[in-house]
């Protein structure tokens, strides 16, 4: 129990939304519909774990974060953060969490980011010498030396994002929640962000909960939770996610001379083909079959490669499967 930083038990959250009527009078015939943003979601996150919450736009990721930390009240179910009920202890819990909402800025746009950092010193009561030490470290790490004293409105999106991140972790929270943290951030800044996440986890056993719809962001996560239409559809590692689909393999074959596509259908599904090239999707067990090894040793083949199914495709397949349900 004490090992868990976050526990979410059967949370359901609905919203009432407007639905316009049809035709000229539609504006006056306003109707309401109930949207289930979260549907009986349960999971737990261990202290020091890096968990990615993956989902399409509108899948309920941000609602889950807000409900989990006590900003939104659930219709049913409950949560605990660091052993406390977030709905009655929002302010206490907020001292130990840092939240970066990609879409919402906490920086004062008419002032330099330094002023927002100073504000965070007051908000979290950080001793002055400690604040200086941390700020210097983060500024250097994120290459913000020339930027953090400039008016925020003159900064690029990526620079603002990095400043936002620094403002959210200056108090060294036990849990960091990042909502779409890499949107608009360049490759080197993404690398610095991921490096910082790993570093904080290692040094301070910080728990990270990262929401994203970008598959490339998943490489840092030790665990992936997938949400679709408010439901949890997967909870496990990326390897487990690949296994979930029977471990398919992608074979690419390059030939010296032209081939007949139909000759290769017996090995698996033809994904792509040209006169002297074919891409197949095959089951992992096919690799051990004699007929397959014989085919691979065909002298007509000048090159071949075997790859695991791409995570992107697995995720798309999982969404499709959930839709059918």
């Amino acid at each position: 129990m004490d090992d868990n930083a976050i526990e979410v038990n059967g949370i359901t959250r609905t919203f009432r939304t407007y639905v316009s009527g049809k035709g000229m009078l539609g504006f006056f015939r306003r109707k309401y519909s109930i949207k289930k943003a979260l549907d009986n979601v349960s999971f737990s996150v261990k202290k020091g774990e890096i968990v990615a919450l993956l989902g399409k736009n509108g899948s309920g990721k941000s609602t889950l974060i807000k409900t989990m930390i006590g900003v939104l009240y659930p219709n049913s179910g409950n949560a605990t953060v660091l052993g406390l009920d977030p709905y009655s202890n929002r302010k206490t819990i907020a001292r130990d969490i840092g939240v970066v909402m990609g879409a919402h800025e906490q920086l004062y746009t008419d002032l330099p980011a330094l002023d927002t950092f100073e504000l965070m010193r007051y908000v979290y009561n950080i001793p002055k010498h400690e604040f200086r030490k941390r700020l210097n470290f983060f500024i250097k790490k994120f290459d913000l030396e020339k930027v953090y004293t400039q008016q925020v409105r003159t900064l690029s999106f990526g620079e603002k994002m990095k400043c936002n991140f620094v403002a959210s972790i200056l108090h060294m929270p036990k849990i960091v929640i990042l909502d779409e943290p890499t949107v608009g951030v360049d490759i080197s800044s993404k690398a610095a962000l991921k490096d910082m996440i790993k570093d904080m986890q290692k040094r301070y056993n910080t728990t990270f909960f990262i929401t994203t719809h970008v598959v490339e962001d998943l490489d840092i996560a030790e665990r992936i939770i997938m949400l679709d239409e408010g439901r949890k559809i997967f909870d496990g590692t990326s390897d487990e996610l690949l296994k979930y689909f029977g471990e398919k393999r992608i074979i690419e074959l390059h030939f010296r001379n032209d081939i007949k596509k139909s000759d290769y259908r017996k090995y698996g599904k033809v994904v792509e083909s040209e006169s002297n090239y074919i891409k197949l999707e095959i089951g992992k067990e096919m690799l051990r079959k004699k007929s397959f090894t014989a085919m691979i040793s065909d002298p007509n083949i000048i090159d071949y490669s075997v790859a695991e199914e791409e995570l992107n495709n697995v995720i798309l397949a999982l969404y499709k499967m959930n839709k059918k349900k």
């Binding site: 930390i69 900003v71 302010k91 206490t92 907020a94 969490i97 919402h104 800025e105 908000v123 979290y124």
Partner: peptide, 13 residues
């Protein structure tokens, strides 16, 4: 704008 969230996640009223 939804920016109220940036205040509600802090230890303040």
């Amino acid at each position: 704008s939804g920016n109220v969230i940036t205040y509600l996640v802090k230890p303040i009223s």
